[in-house]
């Protein structure tokens, strides 16, 4: 086995091959987290609404998406969404960033299933008395959710959200299936270009590790902080 050689990791090469990929992976993670929590909250509220059709719709949404591998959801969406859909975006953005748009939408849809379960657990873990107190002050169901229940549920669930975000960040590598340019894709192209595939995959693992591990440490600190707040 030839000796490892990392000398091709010059700043010029890193910025040429990796930075835009890293930028995409990170933005996809952030956007999918925000979108996933927003959609997930709606689904969680449907699930807890006590209105049967909404409850079942939410239940099936969650069960279905949790039973299908993410990479399949990405592929299905990519292959089945008609071209006309991408023309809805202004200019040629839709056609130019087809894979990226597809990735963002599927990630939001997929992660919402997981985030909705976290939100639901957060809501259900609050003492019943908090809802009573809001009701007794004359708040409607919606006001109670908006001002009393959800803020507390979200705060208590913050570490779990972040943990899910770490998984999400790692999952963004699955966009290779539709050819979007993420960090892993950047490493792959770099490896092929310099004929150094082993070194590039080692470095890719290091980058994923550093980012994920740093986030895990953040989760740990948050957990301690929230324990004090309670």
């Amino acid at each position: 086995m030839p000796a490892l050689d990392f000398s091709f990791y010059t700043w010029a090469n890193i910025s040429t091959y990796l930075l835009s990929g890293l930028y995409f992976s990170v933005s996809l993670t952030i956007a999918a987290t925000i979108g996933g929590i927003a959609l997930g909250t709606v689904i969680a509220l449907m699930r807890l609404s006590g209105i049967k059709p909404l409850e079942y719709a939410a239940l099936w949404y969650v069960n279905l998406l949790r039973s299908i591998p993410l990479v399949m959801v990405i592929l299905w969406f990519f292959l089945l969404m008609p071209s006309a859909f991408y023309n809805l975006f202004p200019g040629d953005i839709g056609q130019k960033y087809r894979a990226e748009i597809c990735a963002l939408i599927t990630f939001i849809i997929f992660e919402a299933a997981f985030f909705s379960e976290i939100v639901r657990a957060g809501i259900q873990s609050l003492p019943r008395g908090q809802t009573f107190a809001g009701q007794a002050l004359g708040m409607t169901y919606a006001q109670n959710m908006r001002y009393i229940v959800l803020p507390q549920a979200m705060r208590n669930m913050l570490p779990v959200f972040l943990t899910q975000t770490i998984v999400l960040f790692q999952d963004t590598s699955l966009v290779y299936a539709i050819g979007a340019y993420d960090i892993l894709k950047g490493f792959e192209i770099m490896g092929n270009t310099f004929g150094r595939r082993v070194e590039t995959y080692i470095m890719a693992a290091v980058v994923y590790f550093i980012i994920s591990f740093a986030l895990s440490m953040l989760v740990k600190r948050l957990n301690e902080k929230i324990r004090i707040l309670r």
Partner: peptide
């Protein structure tokens, strides 16, 4: 909600909003 807004209630476990 309108009726409850005119009826004050105090609970065994206070139920202040901790956030």
């Amino acid at each position: 909600p309108k009726l409850r807004s005119r009826v004050g209630m105090v609970f065994q476990h206070f139920e202040l909003f901790p956030h």
